[in-house]
């Protein structure tokens, strides 16, 4: 219970520091590189295969009803609303969340966090806030790219296996995007739903990694525990929060 309170305390403090001087712009950019650019390969690869397998499965199911032309719609709905954000987030939790915990955890056990404190610098401001900002910005970006590549992967299967023309596939993709309605006339509501999620997941990943990193105890073994816990807790949180977030978003946007 105390840990939950500390977790939210850390999150609140890190968020508050986003708008407080000094800004560690250099650290933010460095973290964006570590969280975003370096995760790009793995996120794109999995996004592509997820799109392909979605197309493959739906083509089999749809064939029973002779509705294979709707493959594009289904792949798009699944990727944009659900699989894109969740899969990217789980991958980033494994790749980046563990890295954050390991790095901050080793800084804790080698007294570098104490050193920051004694040098008159708040470790939350210097370490947690830049990672939080970077994750909040980069997760949506990664998700958009993952969605795009996934829908492209679906196109490959739809055209190669099922024989749906490329033009038709993309028209059904657009139909799906437009079907949810638009917010402020231009922004498809599917996109909004698909981008609120990675934003929230990015926050979960950064805060969870930092939380277990900062609370590391007991030398190198402690660092190992911190990374494991980060991946487990962040992944579970992502899936649980995803459900409730979906409920709220469906209520708001339909």
């Amino acid at each position: 219970m105390l840990a939950v309170q500390e977790y939210f305390g850390l999150a609140a403090k890190a968020i508050r520091f986003i708008v407080a001087r000094p800004f560690y712009i250099g650290d933010v950019i460095q973290q964006m590189d570590a969280i975003g650019v370096e995760s790009l390969g793995i996120v794109l690869l999995t996004g592509f295969f997820t799109g392909m397998v979605l197309a493959l499965q739906t083509s089999v199911q749809m064939a029973q009803f002779g509705a294979t032309m709707y493959i594009g719609r289904l792949v798009t709905a699944s990727m944009v609303r659900e699989l894109g954000p969740v899969l990217a987030a789980i991958l980033v939790a494994g790749r980046v969340g563990s890295g954050i915990a390991a790095q901050i955890g080793s800084m804790r056990v080698t007294e570098q966090i104490d050193a920051l404190n004694t040098l008159g610098v708040d470790p939350i401001k210097k370490l947690v806030t830049p990672r939080l900002v970077a994750a909040l910005v980069m997760m949506p970006v990664l998700t958009i790219l993952s969605d795009t590549v996934g829908i492209g992967g679906g196109n490959v299967i739809a055209t190669a296996y099922v024989g749906i023309p490329v033009g038709l596939y993309w028209r059904t993709v657009w139909e799906q995007i437009a079907s949810g309605g638009f917010i402020l006339h231009y922004i498809p509501s599917d996109f909004v739903q698909g981008l609120v999620k990675p934003f929230v997941f990015g926050g979960i990943i950064a805060i969870t990694g930092c939380f277990f990193g900062i609370n590391t105890k007991g030398g190198t073994e402690g660092v190992g525990n911190a990374t494991t816990r980060t991946v487990v807790v962040a992944s579970v949180l992502i899936l649980v929060v995803d459900y409730f977030l979906t409920q709220v978003l469906l209520f708001l946007f339909g």
């Binding site: 790095q103 800084m107 080698t110 007294e111 570098q112 104490d114 050193a115 404190n117 004694t118 040098l119 008159g120 610098v121 708040d122």
Partner: peptide
């Protein structure tokens, strides 16, 4: 406390240098 600590310089047992920074950046940090 962060401000009061600036009156003091602390040398840690394991030196506790920031290992992502060069020697120059470490000394320049404060």
């Amino acid at each position: 406390a962060l401000i009061i600590r600036q009156k003091m310089g602390m040398v840690f047992q394991g030196a506790a240098l920031f290992d992502s920074m060069s020697v120059f950046e470490n000394v320049a940090f404060p």
